[in-house]
Amino acid sequence: MRVPLKIILLMAALSCAWPCAGAAPVGFTSAHETVAIQADGSARVRSELSWKERDSGSLLLPFNYTAAENLRVTQGEKGAVVAARLEQVEGMTYLRVAAARRAATVAAEFIVPRYLDWNKAGPGEYGYYRWKSVYRNNMRRPIDSVTLEIVLPPGFIAAGFGRSVPSPAAEEALPPYWVKNVDGASHLFMKAGDLALGRACSLEYSFVRRGRSPWLPLAAALAALLWLFFCRDLIFIK
């Protein structure tokens, strides 16, 4: 994927003029972001980041949304709550977390009020709604592995996938996305490796309201009955 020049320049400037001496560089091993889209278009987001080693000081985590409500950040396996706030640096939003040095993970949970714009999403042809989810690494260190999980709004089911970044490596390679329908909810997954500075992984997907139109089954049944009646000569040919 081509990264806009502006973003590269911004990231380069950002890495040179890092705002806080305490915000030590961190090499992230994995990121897992779960976005559960709600019926009103908001989304409950849980963003987890893991690392092997880091220096002391607070963390500046990637934050890919314009606003967040009910922000709650925990660290470690026991889930101890830590202080966190959104911060603007060079026009970009970060999540500043006062995570302890020993912790190997932090998890931020928050609500994004307007994640999905229903009017823009659809419904389009075949009643499909289409949306795109993005995870951008606006840190100055790469993330080894990123998993993006999108939980569709209640009452909807995944129809299919569109473009993805990264795209399947070759024409006949397996795609980096998949679906799991668990407990009546459709979970879409997207995996990307080695997400460098300014890079993003994204997934376009379509979804549709649950429930089946009766017309096609009815038409198929009718066609079968008509065939059985009008083509009965097939088995009575002598």
């Binding site: 089911i157 995944a158 129809a159 299919g160 996938f161 998949w178 679906v179 799991k180 329908n181 668990v182 549709v208 089946r212 096609l216 089954p217 198929a220 049944a221 066609a223 079968a224 009955l225 065939w227 059985l228 083509c231 009965r232 097939l234 088995i235 040919i237």
Partner: peptide, 29 residues
């Protein structure tokens, strides 16, 4: 001829059954 005669209802039946079944866990619509 029997195969031919039963082919359409069999195809319709398979289509109806597979379309109406709940979408399996790892499959999109």
């Amino acid at each position: 001829r029997w195969l031919k005669y039963l082919g359409v209802p069999a195809a319709a039946l398979a289509l109806i059954a597979l379309l109406l079944m709940p979408t399996p866990a790892g499959l999109t619509l």
